[in-house]
Simulated scan of single mutants.
Amino acid sequence: MIKSYKFIETTHSKLHKNVIAFFDRIENETGVYSSSFFDKDFYNKIVKHHPNILEEPLKKIHNELRTWLQKDRTDFCEKIRMSNDIKKICNREVVPTLLNNTPDKLKAIIKKLFYDLYVQVLSGDNVKNEYGSLQQHFEEFKSPNKIFKCPTCGLMPSKSKTERKDDYDHYLAKDKFPFSSVNFRNLVPICTDCNSSNVKGNRDVLKINGKRKIFYPFDETHTGIKVECQLNNDNDNVKEDDLDFSFEYTTDDNRNEEIESWKVIFKIDDRYKKRSKGKAQSWYQHYWQFISKPKYKGLDINLKKELYKDFCLTDPDIEFIKLPVIKAVEKSSFAKALLESKLYSMEFNH
């Protein structure tokens, strides 16, 4: 993640907390199913209004678990708890339980239960009335999180709290890691491109990056990623449509594992290369027009560059790689001459 979010505790988290509390309760229960296994308000206002998609599967799970040895029941419930410690999972301190690793008798029930929790219960009228809608959560969440570009890629605009919410990405895909399907520490607002099927989609982020750590989206100690760019084909045959850029990424606290994971999960290098190739000319033109303004005539060129940098850094909508790409062109010889000759020509013809 280029930037991390600040986690905001809202009433919406109560759905997840009450479901986990149910498993905490039945860990040591060997008696028959009872509505007393739930918080009273949660049962009366949520559970009993979803008898088929919520209460019935939870009842079936309890009836199965009560036949197990205590050690096995505790082990199962502990796996559920660990599967929801998203921070430790990202740090590779604990391993979440995959759906395929759950007992066969429970697999289908758990898959449907936690899918329905997100798709039907969380968006249902009873949860909306009691805890609020996902749109209301987004509005509360975005108030202190004034991030104007997608914090994952830094390319696409991030929605404001007054717009229809961004996509909520299941950082750990719900069809593979069902136990955190309504855990808001696993629900991350990101742009449509990052969440698309040809980028992250529902891929297993813990599998595709080997055993490296991954960024925890709500890690407030994360100070952000820095990027350097270079032009790879600066020669006398270079054409503006064929500019080839590459990127290097660093953090102040050497999060190299997380960076490598981020690059793989969100196909960062490929997306940045395509974006820079398509935008380099217009970005450099914007830069050129800025430093060529008559009001800056007579100013030292380095001061003009600093003014442009400050101008961009105060623009919340600037794309993450814009300044590094301009800097790479500035360092080049042939590409810079090519673009500037076209800009001179445009000004002359104008």
Results as ranks from 00 to 15, higher is better:
185 R>M: 12
210 G>V: 04
333 S>M: 14
324 P>E: 04
164 R>Y: 14
1 M>N: 09
212 R>D: 15
115 Y>A: 06
247 F>H: 14
257 E>F: 07
123 S>Y: 06
103 P>Q: 12
331 K>C: 08
75 D>T: 13
218 F>A: 03
52 N>H: 13
193 D>E: 13
72 D>G: 05
60 K>Q: 15
250 T>A: 13
160 S>D: 15
132 G>C: 03
345 S>T: 13
305 K>S: 12
310 D>C: 02
100 N>Q: 11
145 N>T: 01
252 D>M: 10
343 L>D: 01
220 E>A: 07
121 V>K: 03
265 I>N: 06
208 I>W: 08
86 I>D: 02
137 H>G: 00
104 D>L: 14
78 E>I: 03
33 Y>M: 00
63 N>T: 08
103 P>H: 10
184 F>N: 02
90 C>N: 01
232 N>P: 09
254 N>L: 05
245 F>Y: 05
33 Y>G: 00
125 D>T: 13
186 N>R: 08
343 L>P: 00
31 G>D: 13
80 I>Q: 02
195 N>D: 10
40 K>P: 08
5 Y>F: 09
93 E>V: 09
52 N>T: 11
2 I>W: 08
181 S>D: 01
281 Q>R: 13
128 K>E: 15
342 K>D: 15
2 I>H: 02
197 S>I: 13
64 E>Y: 15
262 W>G: 07
9 E>W: 05
106 L>C: 09
150 C>W: 00
235 N>A: 04
19 V>D: 03
177 F>R: 05
171 Y>L: 07
240 E>T: 07
27 E>D: 01
266 F>Y: 15
235 N>C: 05
245 F>N: 02
326 I>D: 03
290 F>Y: 15
158 S>F: 15
127 V>P: 01
265 I>W: 07
194 C>M: 03
282 S>W: 10
156 M>S: 14
255 R>Y: 11
13 S>N: 14
146 K>A: 10
97 T>K: 13
274 K>W: 09
249 Y>M: 01
349 N>P: 02
326 I>S: 06
138 F>D: 00
124 G>V: 04
85 D>Q: 11
41 D>G: 13
284 Y>C: 07
